[in-house]
Each structure stands twice: as C-alpha cells, then as structure tokens.
C-alpha cells in the first residue's frame, strides 16, 4: 500500500488540498489501481510494423498575424475570472 507521505507528496505536486479522510481513501484506491497497472509489464515489446500510420498528426502552425476578434470575446473571457479590476484579472501575492 502506498504511504500517507507519498499521497501527500503527489497531492503537493498536483496542487490539490486533500482532507485527512481523502488521504486515507486515496491510499487505498491508488494502491489497487497502481497494482492493476502492473499488468502492463507483461506486454511484449513494441516493434514497428510495415503499416503506414493513418492517424499521423502533422504539426500545424499558423501565420504569425493578428486575427481580429470581437471585443465582446475578450470581455467575456475576462469576466469569467473570479476577481477582476477594470479589465485586469487580480491575483494574490506570490509570497
């Protein structure tokens, strides 16, 4: 079973607050799920076959130019922020 400290360590990486009870449940759930993942160790090694990959996604870039969008879109996006002042999004001190 994965330890309480390990769970808290991952939660810290994930920027996630967990209650005492959640940590306990997470220890149990994560352990059984990670145990199940061990199945992958039994999989054979992958070697590339002759088939062409039809799903090949190409890297796409667009021209570096300004695309005009209605002002309402920017307003809508800023309005979604929980804490704003004029057209700025407010955040707390970093330290």
């Amino acid at each position: 079973m994965i330890s309480k400290e390990e769970v808290l360590g991952i939660a810290k990486l994930a920027r996630l607050e967990l209650s005492e009870k959640e940590v306990e449940k997470m220890q149990k759930d994560l352990s059984s799920i990670l145990d199940y993942f061990n199945l992958l160790k039994k999989a054979p090694k992958f070697t590339k076959g002759k088939q062409e990959d039809k799903t090949q996604i190409e890297t796409t870039t667009r021209e570096d130019k300004i695309i005009e969008k209605p002002a309402s879109l920017a307003n809508n996006l800023v309005q979604s922020a929980p804490d704003t002042q004029e057209r700025y999004i407010k955040v707390k001190n970093i330290f």
Binding site: R15, E17, S19, A81, P82, D83, I89, V91, K92, I94
Partner: peptide, 22 residues
C-alpha cells in the same frame, strides 16, 4: 484565477490554487 470556483481565503497565490482545487 482564470475561471471556475475560487477560494480566496488564505495567505498567498499557492493557497488559492490548492484550496480552490480541493
């Protein structure tokens, strides 16, 4: 910060992240 539930109680930015997500 950007959108969605926000928990502003706490001392700094990290607190906002961690508590809002929690």
């Amino acid at each position: 910060i950007k959108y969605g539930l926000s928990e502003q109680a706490g001392k700094d930015l990290l607190d906002v992240y961690v508590k809002s997500r929690g």
